[in-house]
Protein backbone atom coordinates (compact mmCIF):
# COMPACT_ATOMS: atom_id res chain seq x y z
CA UNK A 1 0.00 0.00 0.00
CA UNK A 2 1.21 3.51 -0.82
CA UNK A 3 -0.24 6.40 1.20
CA UNK A 4 0.34 10.05 0.39
CA UNK A 5 -0.35 12.20 3.37
CA UNK A 6 -0.63 15.92 2.70
CA UNK A 7 2.35 15.77 0.34
CA UNK A 8 3.91 18.94 -1.10
CA UNK A 9 6.80 19.51 -3.44
CA UNK A 10 8.49 22.82 -4.09
CA UNK A 11 11.38 22.83 -6.55
CA UNK A 12 14.24 25.25 -6.43
CA UNK A 13 13.10 28.68 -7.61
CA UNK A 14 9.77 28.37 -5.81
CA UNK A 15 8.19 26.09 -8.41
CA UNK A 16 5.23 24.46 -6.65
CA UNK A 17 4.94 21.08 -8.34
CA UNK A 18 2.74 19.16 -5.86
CA UNK A 19 0.08 20.69 -3.65
CA UNK A 20 -1.38 18.94 -0.59
CA UNK A 21 -1.85 15.53 -2.14
CA UNK A 22 -3.74 12.94 -0.10
CA UNK A 23 -4.04 9.61 -1.80
CA UNK A 24 -3.98 5.87 -1.11
CA UNK A 25 -2.95 3.19 -3.56
CA UNK A 26 -4.48 -0.02 -2.15
CA UNK A 27 -2.61 -3.33 -2.21
CA UNK A 28 -2.82 -5.21 -5.47
CA UNK A 29 -4.42 -2.36 -7.39
CA UNK A 30 -3.24 -0.33 -10.34
CA UNK A 31 -3.79 3.39 -9.89
CA UNK A 32 -3.29 5.65 -12.89
CA UNK A 33 -1.92 9.16 -12.45
CA UNK A 34 -3.12 11.31 -15.28
CA UNK A 35 -3.20 14.98 -16.17
CA UNK A 36 -1.83 17.54 -18.62
CA UNK A 37 1.90 17.82 -19.21
CA UNK A 38 3.71 19.51 -16.32
CA UNK A 39 0.97 18.85 -13.78
CA UNK A 40 3.35 16.95 -11.50
CA UNK A 41 2.76 13.27 -12.33
CA UNK A 42 6.42 12.37 -12.62
CA UNK A 43 7.28 14.38 -9.54
CA UNK A 44 4.69 12.59 -7.44
CA UNK A 45 5.89 9.22 -8.68
CA UNK A 46 9.55 9.94 -8.07
CA UNK A 47 8.96 11.06 -4.52
CA UNK A 48 7.84 7.52 -3.67
CA UNK A 49 11.22 5.94 -4.42
CA UNK A 50 12.94 9.11 -3.25
CA UNK A 51 14.45 10.14 -6.55
CA UNK A 52 12.94 13.47 -5.50
CA UNK A 53 12.86 14.76 -1.94
CA UNK A 54 9.53 15.44 -0.23
CA UNK A 55 9.16 19.12 0.72
CA UNK A 56 6.47 18.48 3.35
CA UNK A 57 4.00 15.80 4.32
CA UNK A 58 4.79 12.11 4.20
CA UNK A 59 4.60 9.09 1.97
CA UNK A 60 4.03 5.75 3.66
CA UNK A 61 5.00 2.50 2.03
CA UNK A 62 3.17 -0.36 3.78
CA UNK A 63 2.83 1.88 6.78
CA UNK A 64 6.45 3.01 6.94
CA UNK A 65 7.54 6.55 6.17
CA UNK A 66 9.77 6.27 3.09
CA UNK A 67 12.21 8.85 4.42
CA UNK A 68 13.04 6.57 7.34
CA UNK A 69 13.88 3.66 5.03
CA UNK A 70 17.29 2.93 3.53
CA UNK A 71 17.02 4.41 0.03
CA UNK A 72 18.97 1.73 -1.77
CA UNK A 73 17.26 -1.17 -0.03
CA UNK A 74 13.85 0.36 -0.54
CA UNK A 75 14.39 1.00 -4.26
CA UNK A 76 15.37 -2.62 -4.79
CA UNK A 77 11.92 -3.57 -3.49
CA UNK A 78 10.15 -1.21 -5.89
CA UNK A 79 9.91 -1.94 -9.59
CA UNK A 80 10.65 1.17 -11.68
CA UNK A 81 9.82 1.51 -15.37
CA UNK A 82 10.36 4.67 -17.43
CA UNK A 83 9.27 5.77 -20.87
CA UNK A 84 12.67 5.50 -22.51
CA UNK A 85 13.16 1.97 -21.13
CA UNK A 86 16.54 2.88 -19.53
CA UNK A 87 18.12 -0.43 -20.51
CA UNK A 88 21.90 -0.53 -20.11
CA UNK A 89 23.35 -0.66 -23.63
CA UNK A 90 26.53 -2.40 -22.46
CA UNK A 91 24.71 -5.34 -20.88
CA UNK A 92 22.92 -8.30 -22.47
CA UNK A 93 19.18 -8.76 -22.03
CA UNK A 94 19.82 -11.33 -19.32
CA UNK A 95 22.29 -9.09 -17.46
CA UNK A 96 19.87 -6.19 -17.74
CA UNK A 97 16.95 -8.14 -16.39
CA UNK A 98 18.85 -9.82 -13.60
CA UNK A 99 20.62 -6.72 -12.34
CA UNK A 100 18.63 -6.34 -9.13
CA UNK A 101 18.61 -10.08 -8.30
CA UNK A 102 22.36 -9.99 -8.86
CA UNK A 103 22.75 -7.05 -6.49
CA UNK A 104 20.61 -8.94 -4.00
CA UNK A 105 22.99 -11.89 -4.27
CA UNK A 106 20.67 -14.51 -5.74
CA UNK A 107 22.34 -17.75 -6.79
CA UNK A 108 22.75 -18.69 -10.42
CA UNK A 109 19.98 -21.28 -10.60
CA UNK A 110 17.44 -18.96 -9.02
CA UNK A 111 18.38 -16.17 -11.42
CA UNK A 112 18.10 -18.48 -14.42
CA UNK A 113 14.69 -19.76 -13.37
CA UNK A 114 13.46 -16.25 -12.76
CA UNK A 115 14.76 -15.10 -16.14
CA UNK A 116 13.02 -17.93 -17.93
CA UNK A 117 9.79 -17.34 -16.01
CA UNK A 118 9.74 -13.61 -16.77
CA UNK A 119 10.59 -14.07 -20.44
CA UNK A 120 7.67 -16.48 -20.65
CA UNK A 121 5.48 -13.92 -18.98
CA UNK A 122 6.31 -11.22 -21.53
CA UNK A 123 6.14 -13.68 -24.39
CA UNK A 124 9.76 -13.68 -25.53
CA UNK A 125 11.87 -16.79 -26.04
CA UNK A 126 14.47 -16.87 -23.22
CA UNK A 127 17.17 -18.73 -25.14
CA UNK A 128 16.79 -16.61 -28.21
CA UNK A 129 17.10 -13.28 -26.41
CA UNK A 130 19.39 -14.03 -23.46
CA UNK A 131 22.65 -13.04 -25.10
CA UNK A 132 21.29 -10.24 -27.24
CA UNK A 133 21.81 -6.57 -26.54
CA UNK A 134 19.10 -3.91 -26.13
CA UNK A 135 19.84 -2.32 -29.49
CA UNK A 136 19.14 -5.58 -31.28
CA UNK A 137 15.52 -5.43 -30.10
CA UNK A 138 12.51 -3.53 -31.40
CA UNK A 139 11.02 -0.71 -29.33
CA UNK A 140 8.17 -2.91 -28.14
CA UNK A 141 10.53 -5.72 -27.16
CA UNK A 142 12.82 -3.28 -25.32
CA UNK A 143 9.88 -1.95 -23.35
CA UNK A 144 8.76 -5.49 -22.48
CA UNK A 145 12.26 -6.13 -21.14
CA UNK A 146 12.05 -2.88 -19.17
CA UNK A 147 8.84 -4.09 -17.52
CA UNK A 148 10.26 -7.55 -16.86
CA UNK A 149 13.42 -6.01 -15.37
CA UNK A 150 11.27 -4.08 -12.92
CA UNK A 151 9.52 -7.32 -11.99
CA UNK A 152 12.77 -9.27 -11.64
CA UNK A 153 13.13 -9.33 -7.87
CA UNK A 154 9.35 -9.71 -7.47
CA UNK A 155 8.86 -6.32 -5.80
CA UNK A 156 5.42 -5.84 -4.22
CA UNK A 157 5.22 -2.27 -5.53
CA UNK A 158 5.76 -0.88 -9.04
CA UNK A 159 6.22 2.67 -10.25
CA UNK A 160 5.69 3.16 -13.97
CA UNK A 161 6.19 6.51 -15.73
CA UNK A 162 4.45 6.46 -19.10
CA UNK A 163 5.92 3.02 -19.79
CA UNK A 164 4.23 2.68 -23.19
CA UNK A 165 4.26 6.37 -24.10
CA UNK A 166 6.96 6.14 -26.76
CA UNK A 167 5.46 3.25 -28.68
CA UNK A 168 3.27 3.46 -31.76
CA UNK A 169 -0.47 2.95 -31.13
CA UNK A 170 -0.73 -0.65 -32.28
CA UNK A 171 2.25 -1.88 -30.27
CA UNK A 172 1.10 0.23 -27.33
CA UNK A 173 -2.34 -1.38 -27.32
CA UNK A 174 -0.78 -4.82 -27.45
CA UNK A 175 1.57 -4.10 -24.55
CA UNK A 176 -1.29 -2.68 -22.51
CA UNK A 177 -3.25 -5.92 -22.99
CA UNK A 178 -0.21 -7.99 -22.13
CA UNK A 179 0.51 -5.99 -19.04
CA UNK A 180 -3.10 -6.27 -17.83
CA UNK A 181 -2.76 -10.01 -18.25
CA UNK A 182 0.48 -9.98 -16.26
CA UNK A 183 -1.04 -7.83 -13.54
CA UNK A 184 -3.93 -10.29 -13.17
CA UNK A 185 -1.31 -12.93 -12.44
CA UNK A 186 1.13 -10.97 -10.25
CA UNK A 187 -1.25 -8.52 -8.49
CA UNK A 188 1.27 -5.77 -7.76
CA UNK A 189 0.51 -2.48 -6.12
CA UNK A 190 1.09 -0.10 -9.01
CA UNK A 191 1.28 3.63 -9.50
CA UNK A 192 1.19 4.23 -13.23
CA UNK A 193 1.65 7.58 -14.97
CA UNK A 194 -0.16 8.18 -18.23
CA UNK A 195 -1.19 11.14 -20.34
CA UNK A 196 -3.69 9.15 -22.36
CA UNK A 197 -7.23 8.95 -20.94
CA UNK A 198 -8.01 5.86 -23.03
CA UNK A 199 -5.03 4.09 -21.53
CA UNK A 200 -6.09 5.17 -18.05
CA UNK A 201 -9.63 3.91 -18.53
CA UNK A 202 -8.41 0.65 -19.96
CA UNK A 203 -5.71 -0.10 -17.40
CA UNK A 204 -6.70 1.54 -14.12
CA UNK A 205 -8.54 0.15 -11.15
CA UNK A 206 -8.68 3.78 -10.14
CA UNK A 207 -7.65 7.04 -11.77
CA UNK A 208 -6.14 10.13 -10.19
CA UNK A 209 -6.62 13.26 -12.24
CA UNK A 210 -4.02 15.92 -11.42
CA UNK A 211 -3.93 19.58 -12.33
CA UNK A 212 -1.16 21.96 -11.26
CA UNK A 213 -0.09 19.51 -8.57
CA UNK A 214 -3.55 19.14 -7.08
CA UNK A 215 -5.86 16.13 -7.17
CA UNK A 216 -8.98 17.01 -9.13
CA UNK A 217 -10.68 13.66 -8.79
CA UNK A 218 -9.73 10.21 -7.51
CA UNK A 219 -12.23 7.58 -8.58
CA UNK A 220 -12.86 4.47 -10.60
CA UNK A 221 -12.71 4.93 -14.36
CA UNK A 222 -16.49 4.64 -14.61
CA UNK A 223 -17.04 7.34 -12.01
CA UNK A 224 -14.53 9.66 -13.65
CA UNK A 225 -16.16 9.23 -17.02
CA UNK A 226 -19.77 9.21 -15.91
CA UNK A 227 -19.60 11.72 -13.12
CA UNK A 228 -16.83 14.22 -13.62
CA UNK A 229 -16.57 16.22 -10.46
CA UNK A 230 -15.90 19.56 -12.10
CA UNK A 231 -15.53 21.31 -15.41
CA UNK A 232 -11.81 20.56 -15.65
CA UNK A 233 -12.35 16.82 -15.31
CA UNK A 234 -15.22 16.99 -17.73
CA UNK A 235 -13.08 18.71 -20.32
CA UNK A 236 -10.09 16.48 -19.72
CA UNK A 237 -11.96 13.23 -20.23
CA UNK A 238 -13.44 14.66 -23.40
CA UNK A 239 -16.90 15.17 -24.89
CA UNK A 240 -16.98 11.54 -25.94
CA UNK A 241 -16.77 10.41 -22.35
CA UNK A 242 -20.07 8.58 -22.56
CA UNK A 243 -18.82 6.60 -25.52
CA UNK A 244 -15.54 5.96 -23.71
CA UNK A 245 -17.37 4.73 -20.67
CA UNK A 246 -19.11 2.13 -22.82
CA UNK A 247 -15.82 0.33 -23.09
CA UNK A 248 -16.04 -0.31 -19.36
CA UNK A 249 -19.19 -2.43 -19.74
CA UNK A 250 -19.65 -5.76 -21.44
CA UNK A 251 -22.62 -7.25 -23.19
CA UNK A 252 -23.04 -9.37 -20.08
CA UNK A 253 -23.58 -6.28 -17.91
CA UNK A 254 -26.31 -5.26 -20.32
CA UNK A 255 -28.28 -8.49 -20.41
CA UNK A 256 -27.98 -8.79 -16.61
CA UNK A 257 -29.60 -5.35 -16.29
CA UNK A 258 -32.69 -6.29 -18.31
CA UNK A 259 -34.81 -9.40 -18.61
CA UNK A 260 -34.61 -10.36 -22.25
CA UNK A 261 -36.30 -13.12 -24.15
CA UNK A 262 -34.12 -15.49 -26.09
CA UNK A 263 -34.22 -14.80 -29.79
CA UNK A 264 -34.70 -17.79 -32.11
CA UNK A 265 -36.40 -15.95 -34.96
CA UNK A 266 -33.77 -16.02 -37.59
CA UNK A 267 -30.74 -18.18 -38.11
CA UNK A 268 -28.72 -15.62 -40.07
CA UNK A 269 -28.65 -12.92 -37.40
CA UNK A 270 -25.11 -12.28 -36.20
CA UNK A 271 -24.15 -13.24 -32.66
CA UNK A 272 -22.11 -11.33 -30.11
CA UNK A 273 -20.16 -12.86 -27.23
CA UNK A 274 -21.09 -11.78 -23.71
CA UNK A 275 -17.52 -10.61 -22.97
CA UNK A 276 -17.49 -8.11 -25.83
CA UNK A 277 -17.39 -4.49 -24.68
CA UNK A 278 -20.40 -2.33 -25.36
CA UNK A 279 -18.23 0.07 -27.29
CA UNK A 280 -17.51 -2.67 -29.80
CA UNK A 281 -21.17 -3.60 -29.85
CA UNK A 282 -22.12 -0.04 -30.73
CA UNK A 283 -19.65 0.14 -33.57
CA UNK A 284 -20.90 -3.17 -34.93
CA UNK A 285 -24.42 -1.83 -35.05
CA UNK A 286 -23.43 1.57 -36.38
CA UNK A 287 -21.29 -0.04 -39.06
CA UNK A 288 -24.53 -1.71 -40.11
CA UNK A 289 -23.18 -5.14 -39.80
CA UNK A 290 -26.61 -5.85 -38.32
CA UNK A 291 -29.47 -3.97 -36.72
CA UNK A 292 -29.65 -6.55 -34.00
CA UNK A 293 -27.15 -8.96 -32.55
CA UNK A 294 -27.88 -12.23 -30.75
CA UNK A 295 -26.21 -12.36 -27.34
CA UNK A 296 -24.38 -15.58 -26.68
CA UNK A 297 -22.65 -16.55 -23.44
CA UNK A 298 -19.50 -18.59 -23.27
CA UNK A 299 -21.50 -21.81 -23.20
CA UNK A 300 -23.31 -20.88 -26.39
CA UNK A 301 -26.62 -20.08 -24.72
CA UNK A 302 -28.86 -17.52 -26.37
CA UNK A 303 -29.68 -14.50 -24.19
CA UNK A 304 -31.88 -12.49 -26.51
CA UNK A 305 -30.97 -9.75 -28.98
CA UNK A 306 -29.12 -6.49 -28.59
CA UNK A 307 -30.41 -3.43 -30.39
CA UNK A 308 -29.66 0.26 -30.52
CA UNK A 309 -32.78 0.87 -28.47
CA UNK A 310 -31.61 -1.42 -25.76
CA UNK A 311 -28.21 0.24 -25.65
CA UNK A 312 -29.85 3.60 -25.26
CA UNK A 313 -31.98 2.34 -22.40
CA UNK A 314 -28.88 0.91 -20.74
CA UNK A 315 -27.10 4.22 -21.10
CA UNK A 316 -29.90 6.06 -19.41
CA UNK A 317 -30.19 3.52 -16.66
CA UNK A 318 -26.52 3.02 -15.88
CA UNK A 319 -24.89 6.27 -16.75
CA UNK A 320 -27.06 9.26 -17.31
CA UNK A 321 -29.73 8.01 -14.93
CA UNK A 322 -27.37 8.35 -12.04
CA UNK A 323 -26.48 11.90 -12.82
CA UNK A 324 -27.65 14.80 -10.76
Amino acid sequence: MIQFDNVNKVYEGDVKAINNVDLTVPDGEMVILIGPSGCGKTTLLRMVNQLETISSGSILLNGEDVTTLDKIEMRRKIGYVIQSNGLFPNMTIEQNMMIVPQLLGWDRAKKRDRFNYLMDLIGLNPDEFKKRFPHELSGGQQQRIGVARALAADPPVMLMDEPFGALDPIIRARLQEEFLQIQREVKKTILFVSHDIDEAVKMGDKIVLLRDGEVMQYDTPAEILNHPKNEFVNEFVGSDRVLKSMSLYTVKDLYKAFTLKPNFESKDIRTINEDTSLRVAISMILNQEADQLVIEDNEGNNHGSLTMDLLEQFLHKEIKGQEG
Binding site: I72, R75, I82, S84, G86, M91, L159
Partner: peptide, 27 residues
Amino acid sequence: VDENTKDAARGMGLTNLQILWKVELPN
Protein backbone atom coordinates in the same frame (compact mmCIF):
# COMPACT_ATOMS: atom_id res chain seq x y z
CA VAL B 1 25.67 7.93 -20.83
CA ASP B 2 21.98 8.76 -21.25
CA GLU B 3 20.49 10.58 -18.23
CA ASN B 4 17.41 8.36 -18.37
CA THR B 5 19.53 5.25 -18.18
CA LYS B 6 21.25 6.56 -15.06
CA ASP B 7 17.87 7.53 -13.63
CA ALA B 8 16.53 4.02 -14.22
CA ALA B 9 19.62 2.60 -12.51
CA ARG B 10 19.15 4.85 -9.50
CA GLY B 11 15.45 4.00 -9.34
CA MET B 12 16.26 0.30 -9.26
CA GLY B 13 18.47 0.76 -6.25
CA LEU B 14 21.98 0.82 -7.68
CA THR B 15 24.35 2.83 -5.50
CA ASN B 16 26.27 5.68 -7.11
CA LEU B 17 29.38 3.53 -7.09
CA GLN B 18 27.55 0.67 -8.79
CA ILE B 19 26.19 3.03 -11.44
CA LEU B 20 29.71 4.32 -12.08
CA TRP B 21 31.20 0.86 -12.22
CA LYS B 22 28.53 -1.09 -14.06
CA VAL B 23 27.09 1.55 -16.37
CA GLU B 24 29.14 4.71 -16.75
CA LEU B 25 32.67 3.34 -16.97
CA PRO B 26 31.88 0.50 -19.41
CA ASN B 27 30.30 3.15 -21.62
